[in-house]
Design a binder for these strands. Structure first.
Lengths: 340, 340
DNA sequence: AGAGTCTTCCAAAGCGCTTTGGCTTTCTCG
DNA sequence: CGAGAAAGCCAAAGCGCTTTGGAAGACTCT
């Protein structure tokens, strides 16, 4: 059942039927009702390919997925996706993932924009002066950045959490508890979130006349194993830290294992605070020693990004508004006063 | 730059240019070269929307993503996606995720097929007599099932791993080590994979005249917490099992924690084997006691599914061939002879 | 009653590609 | 040398929708 047939059986022109269906004002309400009714009764659904060709609108939002044998997609991604999908569903938006060589995403961005394959895109895990952000900005497609980039001469729309504030608070708490030597086990420090977290820790330390030793901060892929290794290295030094801030729950698993392997205990010998993106399958309160966290649901962020993308597509949202969500500091058993 | 312009500047018809570009035989090789060359030089890329409208081909593969506030997407999904994306990239295929109410996916399947939104779909986590499989089969769109359904009067194409064989081997090993009371901490037993795993364990036990107590098998969402709870419950009983088979590494984390909380040890008091889908961020060899596993890379499965979908789209693969991959049994420190 | 204004609808022109059917031109071969 | 076949190209008709530019009729107002 296509528009032509529907129009014919209603003895109307395609124009009128199309307009009736799309809510244009220049059609009699009575006629509109008739059309709507017939459309529903015959299960008419406009062909999206045709509509796309005519309007350029796709009803899809895009994401360029970095791939490659050595590229691991974060488990965070799936949780973000849950939120995004949940919102997208309610607005009949689909999500198209365009896999790209991790080292050449530009080609793919250009392609999906030039081809009008999606109405908007989002960008995640941005770095300072991220080329993707600059690119989509010049390409002129609506977009939202999940996280923040920095150092551009233009503004852009983003949704981020207050990473610096979160880790500042976490560090401040540890310092108040008497810790003097903190360590930070961070994610990839080429990404903005990691930079902000480190900045937060440093700022808290500086406020008390302390500082973060270079040897006490490390930047690694956020796996359990890397958490373990980093912790072993940290705790086997002479001036081992008495408190650790850690950028992910998964790494925290490794931290806990390392501490145990060394015959030490949490929080007796080492206090630990990790960032929790709120995975349903791994909860900080269920760690052997309940884990203190800086908490922010990445799933909610996904929903919010979808919401803003939808708003931008339909023209409800404009401009370069960035929003920064506060992060909860949740104190549990894994922190205590400094030993000695 | 569209076809019309390109044709005009080459002083050829659109027909000829189109044919030259698409490899049709009725065009002079010399002409084809000229066309190809000009196309490349001017960066001509056919407009996919137009091509779609004309041919019905989209260059996209589809997945219906169950969503809802209470629906969690598995971290397995992202790893599968890595593999899928990696292959899809090399074939210029995009993946479209269509979010659907978890309780009404049928509407979405019908929509994406009726609208010709994708060239093929895949289905994951199937159950016996899965309605989605029956549906896409009747809808007539090319598809691959990742996993297996059962109980249809038709055949279909799938890629699965030998879950029954894997857990049969695992159980057999435990039995050989003298264990008599096994337990199975399984995933959702409405899904085929879980049914097959349970069957494998039962078959191994039966072969030695043993059986799996109903109280020793449980079916839960695969979270750390559920692994913990199940293990506590199991080990606090009178006839507590001496060996546990577990359907995921994440649950195994909970198992390990529970065993420790109870003052018991692995493998001294309890042997443990878990299934490992091979996550880069959590490795069984790095558990405090290195974990024995049945191992199969879900990422490779993703790549394989993409490969088969691509083959089906281009007509290279036909028929209802199902393939079942063997699973490695990797023995590490978490298994030992039965205590006592 | 005639001019002007709405209201309501329509024919037709795109959107950019593929594909059908046919028209020249060249080649082949008895 | 002329008929038939093959090669190489083209014009035009879709694909199914939106949107432009009217047109016809109904209504208002002087």
């Amino acid at each position: 059942m296509n528009l032509k047939q529907l129009a014919h059986m209603l003895a109307l022109s395609q124009t009128t039927v199309s307009r009736a269906l799309n809510g244009y004002p220049e059609v009699n309400e009575e006629t509109r009702r008739r059309v709507m009714d017939a459309a529903k009764r015959h299960g008419y659904r406009p062909n999206p390919s045709a509509r796309r060709l005519a309007t350029g609108k796709t009803g899809m939002i895009g994401y360029v997925l970095p791939t490659g044998a050595s590229v691991d997609i974060d488990p965070h991604f799936v949780e973000f996706l849950s939120g995004l999908g949940d919102y997208a569903r309610s607005h009949e938006l689909d999500l198209v993932l365009s896999p790209a060589d991790a080292d050449d995403q530009e080609t793919t961005y250009r392609r999906i924009v030039a081809n009008r394959q999606v109405d908007a895109v989002y960008i995640s895990s941005p770095r300072p002066a991220d080329r993707r952000v600059a690119l989509v900005n010049t390409l002129g497609i609506p977009f939202i950045v999940h996280g923040r980039s920095e150092g551009f001469d233009f503004d852009y729309a983003f949704t981020d959490i207050d990473n610096e504030g979160a880790f500042h608070e976490a560090a401040r708490l540890l310092i108040q508890l008497g810790h003097r030597r903190l360590a930070l086990i961070n994610g990839d420090d080429r990404e903005t979130f990691a930079i902000h977290r480190e900045r937060g820790v440093r700022r808290a330390l500086a406020a008390s006349g302390l500082s973060l030793s270079e040897r006490h901060v490390c930047s690694v892929d956020m796996t359990e194993e890397n958490g373990y290794r980093a912790t072993r290295r940290l705790l086997e030094e002479d001036d081992a830290p008495t408190a650790i801030a850690c950028s992910s729950l998964i790494m925290a698993l490794g931290v806990v294992r390392a501490v145990r392997d060394l015959g030490l205990s949490i929080p007796g010998d080492v206090s630990l605070i990790a960032h929790d993106d709120v995975f349903p399958w791994l909860r900080p309160e269920n760690f052997s020693v309940p884990l203190s966290t800086t908490r922010s649901s990445i799933r909610l962020a996904g929903a919010r990004v979808a919401e803003r993308l939808a708003a931008r597509i339909s023209g409800l949202e404009e401009g370069a508004r960035g929003e920064v969500w506060p992060v909860d500091l949740v104190v549990r058993g894994s922190v205590a006063g400094a030993p000695g």
